[in-house]
Design a protein around this nucleic acid. Structure first.
Length: 802
RNA sequence: GCCUUGGUGGCGGAAUUGGUAGACGCGCUGGACUCAAAAUCCAGUUGUAGCAAUACAGUGUGGGUUCAAGUCCCACCCGAGGCACCA
């Protein structure tokens, strides 16, 4: 057999697949079930890196496997093409962001070809294409018309360096996720999506999903629901009530003071009554200047100022208590005010200690005697509630003071406007007399105009505000002069529905046809990066729920959940165990690997590197991939041993089917590494034989095809098998062939292995026991001792207990 | 601090869900081929003791359940990820 020339062979088959449009997917095929395999579409950064390969190649193996199993598989590709890097390149190097983006996509497409991925390019989606963002705009307007999008004055996260607003999810440790400048709070008019209206359903519907626990938990924590009550405290001698949220209304009698956040409006509302107003205002100012970092990073030393001249009345006890302003209470959570229970809350305790405030213990923790593990908490110092179980007391006390049980969330509404150029324009027209107006649907898309200057201005208005021809329009309602919204959408808006567009990417009349959506949605398998757990993954879940409620999605999308099964993939690290980065010089270039070892080797190596369905980090091992290449070459050389006249050995037959069984299971569970191992093991079996049966080679090639499609197609052709390797039925496990005539009996004494005996596999328990007892090795341990018990596990082992 | 995950050879990782711990690969050791090297092939490779057969120990630590525990239960230690002055 000639040397295996991956370069030639891989190019040949890639060309063939392209010429035959081999992976163009029909919406339905008679007798086949549809299967939707999705991964997060890439940002066109310019170069395919190892992470992209890992993201696309492994799902491709699954897609190819599912096709061979008889499914009609949709495995689409596209580009998440709006976003900051294009714009930064424009500002830095004066290039046109559109050209930059389209050049990058061209380059990446040609790189992707080298993966041998079975993408359906005819459904490609590019979010910066007006034919796509027309529908992003249209979908936004549906949300707007249904009160799920609002233009509101909000305290926005402002990045002074990017000069734009960020969503909460894009602020990491109070820094801009992208440029790491300290994020400031700024009061601004922003477009917001009402994701909080879906908070409960976004939590509750998780239960039904076949998702890893860590993703569900992350989303739950992020949404941060807590159950509690809203209570009102009367301010003494004033017609004013201070509302608080608490999860522990049972501790109401222990409330000895109250705290409001620095931004709480009571300070303004009762200004005239606060006798130390100057001191209070000074405190409020310092708190506002303090960045989020200072506020959370200091040694948690609490500060605050008493509002002199103001007292609140504890609604349960009638006691007058002081009110403080302190920045340990957050303006944006709950009601921005708390009732402080220093006896039972660590933070309140620290504050009370510092300012010498009273403690009243109201909870008595004790064991109730019946079960040692159950702590029984009862109420004390609480008048008629004394002795009551604290859980019961919650609702009873809320009822007494006329409060109401309620829930509160950490999740905030999603700010989607960005003061940047390279994004989809927000399809709104501002009219002085009519207010914000939706751009009429027949005028969509609102096309992003070309500009000369990509810099936002210093007040944080988008570069579009400088384009008079874009800005000045007439109001769609009153036809008077009006101005276009000049902010653009956050890219997460564009990526919240791309998987719907794949179902019908060329549709000019709708974002997607309902019928076509129903043939593909929901997505069967969705894989992506863990960093999107509380961003894209949450936004897109919200999006489909909202669209489902607006009757824009078919019934197949149950609960409005877009993804049946989701997994977060691991990270591939550099050979030194660090994250790949140019500065560390540990970057593996996939183009190099393809050139020297081949795309098939790369695919197999990535499959072999570890399980795909667990979040972890795998260092790239340059020696290990050589081992995989060795495997590929050995497979190729297998052809020297092929014979049609071998007498088929039972044990070889068994190995074939047991490998097939393991391989099949490994793909279903995304533990593709064990599948590769099964094939390597089978190859070892083949290699020990003088000749191998041609039918066995055929099964082996079918098994390997999803992993190494080029190699297998070539060998399939060379061997003269019918058709194309990629179009074959997945071979069936013949269970009869898995049954061995002989078995290895494990013989244990007191649970420790002492002997292994080869026996016919059809012996009954008594015969197995006899065989075990007669083993000389066993007798050594048993002699002279009384046998208490013998355990026989059929077909496996005998354990003799002495 | 809370939540979620993990912890197995020199390394990446297997283990049919309670039944042979370390599959497969890398690396390493020895051998064959070669003038030599590379490539390839063969054998070995958890530790300790032994020339060996073999024996004992062994899945983060300590207990427990069981004929039998990497796997189940309890307590603790360490790593990774998420949340974090969230009332």
């Amino acid at each position: 057999m000639d040397r295996y020339e991956h370069g030639k062979i891989e190019k040949k088959w890639q060309q063939k697949w392209e010429e035959n449009s081999a992976y163009v997917t029909k919406d339905s095929v008679q007798g086949q079930e549809n299967f939707y395999q999705l991964f997060e579409f890439p940002y066109p950064s310019g170069n395919l890196h190892v992470g992209h390969w890992y993201a696309f190649a492994i799902p491709d193996i699954v897609a190819r496997y599912k096709r061979m199993q008889g499914y009609n598989v949709l495995y689409p590709i596209g580009f998440d093409a709006f976003g900051l890097p294009a714009e930064n390149a424009a500002i830095k190097r004066g290039v046109n962001p559109r050209e930059w983006t389209y050049d990058n996509m061209d380059h990446m497409r040609s790189q992707m070809r080298s993966m041998g991925a079975s993408f359906d390019w005819s459904r490609e989606v590019v979010t910066c294409d007006p034919a796509y963002y027309k529908w992003t705009q249209w979908l936004f307007l549906q949300l707007y018309k249904n009160d799920l999008a609002t233009h509101a004055q909000v305290s926005a996260n402002w990045c002074p360096s990017c000069k734009t607003v960020l969503a909460n999810e894009q602020v990491v440790d109070s820094k801009c996720e992208r440029c790491e400048s300290a994020v400031e709070k700024k009061q601004m008019q922003q477009w917001q999506i009402g994701i909080t209206k879906y908070a409960d359903r976004l939590i509750d519907d998780l239960d039904e999903l076949d998702w890893p626990q860590e993703i569900k938990t992350s989303q739950k924590n992020w949404i941060g629901r807590s159950d509690g009550a809203e209570l009102e405290f009367q301010i003494a001698d004033a017609d004013y009530r201070l509302k608080v949220f608490t999860t522990r209304p049972d501790t109401l009698y222990g409330v000895t003071y109250m705290v409001v956040a620095p931004e709480h409006r009571i300070i303004e509302d009762l200004e005239s009554r606060i006798s130390n107003l100057e001191e209070v205002q000074a405190y409020v100012e310092t708190a506002a200047v303090k960045s989020e970092i200072d506020r959370t990073n200091d040694t948690k030393e609490k500060t605050g100022v008493k509002l002199e001249g103001i007292a609140a009345i504890n609604p349960a006890s009638g006691q007058e208590i002081p009110v403080y302003v302190a920045d340990y209470v957050l303006g944006g959570y709950g009601t921005g005010a708390i009732m402080a229970v220093p006896a039972h809350d660590e933070r309140d305790f620290a504050f009370a200690k510092k300012y010498d405030l009273t403690l009243i213990p109201v909870i008595d923790n004790g064991f109730d005697g019946s079960e040692a593990t159950t702590i029984h908490s009862s109420i004390i110092h609480s008048e008629e509630f004394d002795g009551m179980d604290s859980e019961e007391a919650k609702s009873a006390i809320v009822k007494k003071v006329g409060g109401k049980m309620t829930k509160t969330y950490k999740l905030k509404d999603w700010t989607v406007s960005r003061q940047r150029y390279w994004g989809a324009p927000i399809p709104i027209i501002h009219c002085e007399s009519c207010g914000p107006q939706a751009v009429p649907e027949n005028q969509l898309p609102v096309v992003l105009p070309d500009v000369e200057d990509y810099l936002p201005n210093d007040e944080g208005r988008s570069p579009l505000s400088k384009v008079a021809s874009f800005v000045n329009v007439s109001c769609p309602k009153c036809t008077e002069d009006a101005k276009r919204e000049t902010d653009t959408f956050d890219t997460f808006m564009c990526s919240s529905w791309y998987f719907l567009r794949y179902c019908d990417s060329q549709n000019a009349d709708a974002f997607a046809d309902l019928e076509k959506l129903s043939s593909w949605m929901p997505v069967n398998h969705y894989s992506g990066g863990a960093e999107h757990t509380t961003m894209h993954l949450l936004y897109s879940r919200f999006f489909t729920k909202a669209l489902a409620d607006l009757k824009l999605l078919p019934d197949t999308v149950k609960n409005g959940e877009p993804y049946t099964r989701r997994m977060n993939r691991s990270l591939i690290l550099g050979p030194d165990g660090n994250k790949m980065s140019k500065s560390k010089g540990n970057v593996i270039d996939p183009d190099d690997i393809v050139k020297h070892l081949g795309g098939d080797t790369m695919r197999l190596y990535l499959a072999f590197i570890g399980p795909y369905n667990e979040v972890g980090a795998y260092p790239w091992n340059p020696e290990s991939i050589i081992g995989v290449r060795r495997f590929v070459e050995r497979v190729w050389r297998l052809q020297d041993k092929v014979s049609t006249t071998v007498s088929v050995d039972d044990s070889v037959e068994r190995e074939v089917h047991s490998a097939l069984k393991r391989l099949t299971e490994s793909i279903e569970t995304y533990k593709l590494n064990t599948g590769v191992a099964a094939m390597m093991q089978l190859l070892n079996v083949f290699d020990k034989q003088e000749h191998i049966d041609k039918d066995h080679l055929k099964i082996f090639l079918s098994m390997l095809t999803p992993y190494a499609p080029h190699l297998c197609c070539e060998m399939w052709e060379v061997q003269g098998f019918d058709g194309d390797a990629t179009n074959q039925q997945w071979p069936e496990v013949e269970h009869a062939k898995l049954v061995a005539k002989e078995m290895t009996l494990i013989v244990q004494v007191n649970g420790k292995v002492k002997d292994k005996i080869t026996l016919p596999s059809d012996l009954d328990d008594a015969a197995l026991e006899r065989a075990a007892r007669s083993s000389t090795k066993v007798q050594k341990f048993v002699d002279g001792k009384e046998i208490h018990k013998v355990i026989v596990v059929k077909g496996k082992l005998v354990n003799i207990v002495v």
